[in-house]
Design a binder for these strands. Structure first.
Lengths: 132, 132
DNA sequence: TAACTGTTATACTTATAATACAACAGTTAT
DNA sequence: ATAACTGTTGTATTATAAGTATAACAGTTA
């Protein structure tokens, strides 16, 4: 699992970590049951503090993306992924809304916008690569 | 212009202000040339500090959504809206990407996702209302 | 026994968000 | 003229979040 951090980003480090791990799952690079580095080794590898990694793992655990066996380590949830709950849909719409509004203000058509979304979806799920 | 703030939100107040004004423009409720409340009156109306409103206005001005005449006040840009620049597209894609990734992880299909986006686009631009 | 695992606790630093109070320069209506 | 308004700027303060540093605990594994 390759992690790319932007220290100049306005996004907190732990948020960037969460995002990249979720994208790893979405892309298939991280498969169910696959182990993740320990909080200490990952922190050491990318040069950040243990607590920052721990915060990201804790969030991912609360949502159900990963499982934590007390002394065995961290793994991608081997059984299931988080559901499409009403709470999640509300969160997602709340995030999309200002993005869509700005696009409209700038004159972007619905077709353009949907095409961008489709493009990103394809980029993430592109099947022409295998990760083993 | 009705402003609805969520003081419990993780989003800063000035960000909520920016978002709501941009959505006002996108929906047509705020038309080109239309005046916005002064920093003091808006701050007073919604019970926040002058500087918080000023920060939101400054950001909107920098992007080109509003114009500020030194002593005349603030208006929605009467001539043009910000363009769809490469920088903007990069920002937009960077915001969409983690949202799409999470949706994929949770098993949402491309069709479902596009439908949500379309729904939000329609909600914002619905033409069955007139704002005069 | 030594090296590892997640977890927890405390303390500290830094940056951002928001507020409070004040003033300046220019405009507008009385 | 003068009072009331405009955006702008400055400084100081408080609160919260982010990140780091150091340390320890309990259980696992080689």
């Amino acid at each position: 699992m390759i992690i790319q951090l932007d220290m100049q980003s306005e996004l907190p480090i732990y948020t960037q970590l969460v995002n990249q791990i979720i994208e790893g799952i979405a892309s298939g690079r991280l498969k169910p049951g696959e182990p993740l580095p320990s909080v200490r080794s990952l922190a050491s590898d990318i040069g950040i503090n243990l607590h920052t990694v721990n915060k990201a793992y804790t969030l991912l655990k609360q949502e159900g993306f990963i499982l934590v066996h007390r002394q065995r380590g961290v793994v991608i949830n081997p059984d299931s992924m988080p559901e499409i709950t009403k709470a999640y849909m509300g969160k997602m719409r709340g995030e999309l809304r200002p993005i869509v509004a700005e696009a409209i203000s700038r004159g972007m058509s619905q077709e353009q916008l949907l095409q961008e979304m489709e493009q990103i979806y394809q980029e993430i799920t592109q099947t022409d690569k295998e990760y083993d």
